[in-house]
Structures are given as C-alpha cells and as structure tokens.
Design a binder for these strands. Structure first.
Lengths: 389, 389
DNA sequence: CTGTTAGCGCATTCAT
DNA sequence: ATGAATGCGCTAACAG
C-alpha cells in the first residue's frame, strides 16, 4: 500500500506521521544521532527503510541551509575537448583531490558561448565557482559574476576584485625564448595558442593582437617578444601562426609545416603549449628535419607526454595539478597550512563542512596567487645549426 | 542602501515588493518572457540588476520543480586517479558530449568507500546517476540505489533491474587469447586488473578469484581461460598476477618483470588493460626482450596511447567514448535516433528539458546495452619464437 | 497580461 | 529527549 506512495516520493513528513512523531524527530534521526535516543532512532530508520524513504531530499536541505557542498567548474572549451586536453585534465586532478578531501562534489557546467545556454550557470546549485581559463569577453564569466558567489579564476580573465591563480606567463615565455637565443638561434618562429575564440588558424596580424581576448596568449607572446628584442632581433620579422590547441595535433602539424616551409627556415620554434610543440615535432619529422640538430622546439606546460615522447620536449614546467588544488583550496577557504589540523577536527562531524563561508573566504587577502614555473631542458632543443650563421 | 541588502541576498519577493508587483510577475520576467509585456519585463530586469539580484535561486527552483538538470557520476577510484585513467577520461568525454548537447550539468561525486562519506551521494542534487565500473560490494552503489533515482551502470556491477552499458568482456578476452594462441604461443602469462578493491599487487590464487568483486576482471579472466582450455592448455599452470592499473605504470612494470623472470619465460602476455600492457612493454624493454620477436603482448581497451607508442599495441578495441555517450543518453531518456529531431524541437525552449522523466526512461526496454569490440592487431604481437617449441 | 494562493521538503529555533 | 511552528525562495495553477 505504501509502495505506490513511494513513487510519489516519501517525505520526512510522511514517515513522521506514520510513526506518530514529529518531523524534527525524524530529521534528527538522520542528521543528529546525538539528539535522539538510540532506540527511537533505530525505529525511525527502520520505518524509513520500510516505507522506501530515499533519505532527506537534498533540494529541501539545500534550500533550508543555503549550502550545497558543491563547487562549480566552468571551462572555456566544449567539454569533450576539455577532457582531451592534458592541461585541463591535470588541473582537474588538482581540483578533485581537494574536493575529495573535504567531501565536496564537483559540478562541471557546460557553457557554450553564443548559446542562450549559460542558463546552466544560473541554474547551478553551487557554493562557488572556479573559472578556468576563459576569454576576457566571455558571457559565461559575466553570468558567473552575476551569481554573486565566491569565484576563483584560474589563468584568465583577470578581473578586478576576483582572486586569480596563475603563473607569470610573461616571464616564463621570456625564459623559453632566452633559452633558444642562448643557443644561438636567430631565426625563430612562434606557434601561438588562440588569441580570440573564433577557432582561427593561420598567421597572426596586428589586428588580432589588439583584439586578443585570451590574455595568457598575449602575455606569452610578449614574453617571447621581449626576449627577442633584448637579443636585438626584429620581432616584426618573426613569423607567428595561431592555432587553437584543442583541435588536436593535426592543425598544429599543418601550422608548423607552414612555418617550416618558410625561406629561410626557422631554426627554433617556440610553441605556446606542449600540444602545439608536439605538432611541430611531427611536422619536423615529416619534413625529414632532425630535432634538435636542424630544429629546436620549446613547448610550454610540461604535460606528462612531454617527457615521454621522443625526442622529449624542452618546455616550461608549470604546476598544473597544484594550480587546481590551490584554486579549490582558495575557494573552499582552506589555507594549505591549516588543512591538516582542520581535517582531524572536522573528521568526526558527519555533515558537510561549512567550507564556503563569506568570512573565511577573504577576497582582499592575497587576491593573486602566482605559481612558480621553470624551464625544463630536454632533447628537443640544442645549439643552432652552425652553417646557418 | 539596498547594497547591504544584497549581502543578505535579494529574493524574488524583495524585488516584487520594491516594484509593487507580484512575485509571479518577477518570476515570469525571468522564466517566461512570453507571459509578460516586454516593457514590464525590461523594468523588472532593470530593477533586479539595480538591486543586485543574482537571479532566481537554483535551490528554490529545484525544490519547487523537482528537477535539477544535473546528472551524477560515481567513480570507483579516488578522483585524482580517475582523471589519470585514459579509459575513464574517454568515458567522460562521451558523457560530457551528451550533457553539453542537452545542457545538463555533470556532478562528479567523490565517493571514498569505507568513509562515512557516501554522504556525498545522499546529498547530491541530481536527476539520476551513472555508476561507472564499481565493485559488486560497493557501499556507494548501495547508497545510490537508496536514492531511488534513475540509474545507469557502466561495466559493473550487474544489478538486476538496473540498465547496464557494457561490452562482452568474456568474448573479447577470449578473442585476445585466441589471437596469441593462433600465433602458436603456448606459454602465456596474464596480468589481471583488480579482482578486489584492496589494492593488492601480486599472484592470484583461487580464493581471490572466488571473492572477486570486480566482475569485469573475472569475465576477462574466464575469457582467457576458455580460449586456453580450448587450445588444450593447462590453465592451472598459467601464471596470473594482479595489479590495479591505477597505480600508474610502475606497478605494472614490476608485476610484468616477475612474470618475465619465470622459467620458462612466457612468450605471450595477456594484459587486461592497455595501461598494464604498456607496463609489460617497458618490462620487456628493460629485460632486453624484443617485442614481438621474443615476446608478444596484447592489451585491452585501445586507449589513444596504444596506437602511439612503439611498438604499437595489439589490443581489444572497445568504444570508450560511445559508452559514455550511450550511458548518458539512456539516463536522459534520449534515444539516439530521436536525438536530432528532438533537438530542434527543444531548441526554442529556454528551459532545461524534462529529460529525466519516469515515463521516457523505461527500465524494461533494453536494460542491457552491449557494445561491440574488436581485436586490433598492431606491432606488439607476432608469431611465437620458433626455437622455443 | 497580472496577481493570489499554495506548497515543494527540509532544518531550525524555541518550547516542553 | 521530543515536538510545534516557521520560513528558506521559488513556480504552477488558477482567477481576474
């Protein structure tokens, strides 16, 4: 008889009524074992099971408590691409490790720009958002901001008043370029990540640079530029081709080919991420060029694959996983130092910790977290060919 | 003045009051543009913005509508590992592509067994769950079932009445073994995935087999066994070592070494997943064995890396991405055929589609979806060494 | 087109 | 230790 009732969903109320106790008592049986006699609790739980009660409804609870125990994650790319991107994946590892630690769930919000559909952001029942590497003009980011929830941005965009976790892209890129320059390379080519979110593939002109919506790409480019200018190179003569890394390595391959078919051919390629660098590696192989004898290639990110492929990739290492972990920790208001002490203190509780609290989460203190990078020299870079200069 | 109010969060009510209209009107301004005059709507929206209204509170909405627009995903492994596992990642790609299509969000629920913490499952505000490859005795799965929401299981466990998306593991494994047997290999070794969730690494004995909680591992093992028995081999003499693939390739490497140091050395290794196979590849390399001349290796899954490494891996290909997509589509009650027509019909709506409806989601129709696999022969397998038999 | 009414299911005072 | 009352913020009927 109560079976059909189950279909229409049993509530706290129902089981309270069936037992002749109050809702509070039933609620306590589930949420506050110490506030109710063990015997009664047992009976309540038994009745609940018998009636097919699914447990306290999360939506009711969330509405009541105002907390969700969920952090929202917003990616710039289409989701399937994001899950193909080793950099994003590493970031996710970091985020998820922290989530797991504090028993928070992770809501991955699909957010196709241009669509009417950042509705998903408005609808997301979360305690805060992590925005991962979005363009400056993203509507999705605007929607996130409208939610007036705690927000952490990773990489970009740099919004005033919003904490940012990043690296010093300018400095890191400069270091990459200096590495090649120090090896006497004088003819360099650049494979850039997207400057705009229009999936354009091809040479970069000054208009694109001015309109650039991805600050990271711009910063890295400026880093390359500064190093080259310091070395006395005419940056205007340095070929720059743009290629969104998400389009798999094929585009990168093609783009690198165009670069390598120029006359005179570059002896060094600076790629703004490892995926692009790997595309260049394949292009070199395709053209019968030896790396690093004929051509040096420097990537960026140090994804796992970078150290595995042959020749292994010289690249800028950035702490990808840590980036995710720190973003999550900032959002959750957990200082790394406090973590362990807090953990044990919280461990006994069987409720979701109040991790997202206005108070704990202080926007003013340390709004930017800049992580360290370092150049990792591997096989893909070497001295410039002598006969060429 | 209303600024401080914002901190205590503005509600529909507040803005209705401030404008002297009803809550419904405000609600309509946000959710039903057609039910309200454009002019009034503009004014409402303007007032909302001015008062710092963050938009309709998702928790209130969810409680009211009973829908969340979210599908929950439960992994067996610790999250950071899951995001390292190419098989899980591919699965995620499939799931997320469908989510994106229907504008559903994806809630990744951390679910450490043994902890008091499948609380996260009870708290998850979702319309349904996808359970990805969990052990038979998982408490997390029990909690999911308690929620009485639509559930799709992928791979395992096989629960009566719960739709399952899987492959024919037994048949596929048998095919892998037959491949080696057909190449005249007679001394085979097996590297098995986990049979129990105790992170055990080492030889498999019969007790472990009996207690096995991962049905997939067992099915694959039986597939190997049947093939070998058909070929007249004494399966009891076939060495089997177990190694959870999530512990990176290092464990797999070690485990493969022990297998290869046996006397007489196996000429063929069957690995239950590509990660393990790659560990074996490294072990062979380490021992100076040539693959496939001295040793043949067959993997399982056909992860992207399998076709990239050298020697490329002979393996069983299973449609990993499709698996995720189909699981999501089943959960969302979207038949693949209907998808496109539905899409356009739904496109005009600006609400989340009622995708998770009891009616659409029919448990009885096609509860098991078995996807096709195929053996992909690459470089890692070849004829058994002649001198050895 | 607009307003009124009525809960959705829950956790939390504050009494007892 | 238990219960009664209150509203979290919203949307869906329905009535005007």
């Amino acid at each position: 008889m109560q079976q059909d009732k189950a279909l229409k969903s049993v509530t706290l109320q129902d089981i309270a009524k069936a037992m002749g106790v109050s809702r509070t008592t039933v609620s306590n049986a589930f949420n506050r074992p110490d506030q109710i006699s063990a015997e009664l609790r047992e009976r309540v739980l038994a009745m609940a099971k018998q009636m097919g009660y699914a447990g306290p409804n999360p939506m009711g609870r969330m509405l009541r408590t105002g907390k969700t125990g969920v952090i929202g994650l917003v990616f710039s790319e289409a989701l399937p691409y994001a899950f193909q991107d080793p950099v994003a994946i590493a970031f996710l590892q970091g985020v998820s490790s922290v989530c797991e630690k504090v028993k928070a769930s992770l809501l991955i919000v699909p957010t196709l720009e241009s669509d009417v559909a950042q509705m998903t952001i408005q609808q997301a029942a979360v305690d805060g958002f992590i925005v991962y590497s979005m363009p400056d003009d993203s509507e999705a980011v605007a929607k996130v901001l409208e939610r007036k929830l705690p927000v952490i941005v990773v990489d970009q965009p740099n919004l005033s008043g919003v904490p940012l976790v990043r690296i010093d892209d300018h400095k890191a890129a400069r270091e990459a370029a200096l590495h090649l320059l120090g090896l006497n390379h004088r003819r360099l080519g650049i494979i850039a990540m997207d400057l705009l979110s229009d999936s354009y593939v091809g040479p970069v002109n000054s208009q694109r640079l001015e309109r650039a919506a991805f600050e990271i790409s711009l910063l890295r480019l400026r880093g390359y530029e500064d190093a080259m200018r310091e070395a006395g190179l005419d940056f205007n003569k340095v070929p720059i081709v743009e290629c969104p890394p998400r389009n798999s390595e094929n585009d990168a391959f093609e783009v690198a080919l165009t670069l390598l078919k120029q006359d005179p051919r570059p002896t060094g390629i600076l790629a703004m991420c490892d995926i692009l660098a790997i595309g260049a590696l394949r292009a070199a192989e395709h053209l019968g060029l030896s790396v690093p004898k004929d051509l040096s290639i420097v990537g960026f990110d140090d994804i796992p694959l970078a150290s595995v492929i042959r020749p292994s990739l010289t690249t800028i290492q950035q702490p990808l996983i840590e980036k995710g972990a720190i973003a999550a920790e900032l959002l959750l208001g957990i200082s790394i130092a406090d973590r362990d002490s807090h953990k044990t203190a919280t461990a006994t509780t069987d409720k979701i910790p109040d991790f997202v609290m206005g108070g704990v989460f202080d926007l003013n203190e340390n709004p930017h977290k800049v992580l360290e990078t370092k150049l990792v020299v591997r096989e893909s870079s070497g001295p410039a060919p002598i006969q060429l200069r």
